[in-house]
Structure formats: structure tokens, C-alpha cells
Design a binder for these strands. Sequence first.
DNA 1: CGTATGTCAGACACACTGAAATAA
DNA 2: CTTATTTCAGTGGGTCTGACATAC
Lengths: 159, 159
Amino acid sequence: MEPSVETGSHQVGWIPDRLRNQFGRLLSLTTAHSQRLVNRELSALGSRKYHFAVLAALDEHGPASQTALSGWTGIYTSDLVAAVNELSERGFVQRRTDPADKRRNLISITSAGLKHLEAMDETLTALQERILAPLDEDERERLNELLWKVHDHLAKGDV
Amino acid sequence: MEPSVETGSHQVGWIPDRLRNQFGRLLSLTTAHSQRLVNRELSALGSRKYHFAVLAALDEHGPASQTALSGWTGIYTSDLVAAVNELSERGFVQRRTDPADKRRNLISITSAGLKHLEAMDETLTALQERILAPLDEDERERLNELLWKVHDHLAKGDV
DNA sequence: CGTATGTCAGACACACTGAAATAA
DNA sequence: CTTATTTCAGTGGGTCTGACATAC
């Protein structure tokens, strides 16, 4: 009775109304889709989002403590430990104790890390282009603007 | 003795450019925020999104197999097992063998389940209103339209 | 077809250890 | 000035949800 189901990501025919009309669901479905693609691209480079975020922050700001990195990237410090470990194992960052404050670590990006960052950035930029393909420039701007509005509202914690 | 620890999202001042300009990041941040709120509301009702999705599908479609539910909700069948177990433990659904095909389960919603669904629905609708508060009607429509465009493009698997 | 198991990422709360700043 | 207390950075281990694979 049901039309055949494909393998891979599932396809949906009918969707319950209450689900279709839920804005949050549209948001999370779209996010899930695009994050799946992002992860696929990044994992081809042996990385994941945390790595990109940390390297980007280090590149743009310069050496920083883990607490600072946490603040800028939104990654919890406890999760940051693992990310920095992984990055330093691969020689993408260096961790040394801040001489000025011995309880603090100073993380800095290496040239290998910079190269890796650029590779990830290019990949992600190209991917983003493919994801947004159906939208023209105006629409992209509009979408960004509207999303930021909602985001900022949520970030303020009013709701 | 402990001053209460502020829980919640961290505040960001500066954000690295490469992160700020990543559309995928904006998407996932916004989603994360709103999902956090959704989870908070639902968990106050002792539920989570899977429960809502399953009950909504059952309510709108009538008794169905787990495979069908999986297709409509996007929940993997392996995860659906747990969700249906939880729901049936609370008396919100009933699981019985399909007399027409003995290897298939027919899941149906109970009246208690229906009541629970309505409660969740009301909660979520109210929450959605709060989340979208900064947007007027036009903007909401526009945002939905643009998101659907991207979503459908992704769902087609072209990218 | 359904169920059990398991992996992995991400978000998050907590407890703990040193080191630093500060009050007594 | 030097203890005693508090604050703060980093680490570790753990929980939970969600997406997803696979074997029975």
C-alpha cells in the first residue's frame, strides 16, 4: 500500500499537520539536513565543527585561554578540553602555560593549523553556496536578517 | 552556602568572523536555542519531541505500524521502539499485533494519549508565539517560505 | 517488520584540583 | 606579612537527547 521507501535519508510523503505547522520543526529539520552535510565535509578532513570554531577563533584573535575560546565559540570549557587535545595531537594548535598566570593555558594556532583552517573554510564556503543555491542574493540576505532577529531575541533570554 | 550558579546560555561579546558569517552556524544556533526551550516545556510535561511526533501522527492518521510512523515522523525505527515503549507505559498508546499481518504491530492512541497530545500542542503553540515574537505576520510568512525553500532543496538530496 | 544494542556528536551539570587574588 | 578564604581556570567523568548503523 505504501509507496516504496528509499534507503539513505528517509523521504516523507505525508506529514502530520501538527508537525508540519510547527515552526521549530522546520527549523530543526533544515538544520539537521545542513549539519549532516557540514559534518560529512568536515569529517572528510578528519575534523568536526568544534575544531573549525576553535581554529577560526584563534586565527582571528590570536593566542587565547580556553575560557576565552569557550566564550567566543559557545563551546563549554569541559568540551573544549577534548577539542584542544585533539587539535594539539594533530599539531594544529599549541598549548602552553601562560607565564603571567600559571593557572591559565595559552592556546595558539600553528601554521599547519592555519592551513587546515583554510581548507575547512573553503570547503564550508563551497558547501554553503550549494545549500543556499535555490535562493537569490536578496532572499539570502532576507533569510539571514530574519534568522538573526529570532536568534538575538532568543539569545537575550527574554523568552 | 553556595550562591546559586547561573545556568543558561553563555553570553558572547566578540564572535570570530568566520563563524558569524557561516549560515549553517546561524541556523544551528537558532535551532539550538529554540529546541532548548521546546525541551524545557515538554519535559515539564514529562515528554520529549519524539513523543509529540508519534502522538500527532497517530492522532491524525489513526492506528499505524511502526514503520509507517517512522516514515511520517522521521524517527528511525530503532529509536521508535523506545518512544513507543515509553508512551505505552504511560498508557498513551496501545500496541497490539496486526491481525492481518502478525509480524506487524498496530499502534493506536488512547484517550489519555489524546489528552496528553492536546496539552503538548497548546504548550508548543504558545511557545512558538513567544519565539517568533519579534517578527510580524509578514516576516513570519517570509521566513517560513525561505526556510521551506532551503529545506525542500536539501530534502531532494541534490546537494 | 520489529527489537535490541551500540556508536558518535553535541549540550550541559558537577565535582575536583591547583593557582591567584583578597580579606583578616 | 602571612594565613585563611574565596574565586577562577582547567580537567574529568557523567547524563541525556538525537541521528544513525547493524545484527538478530
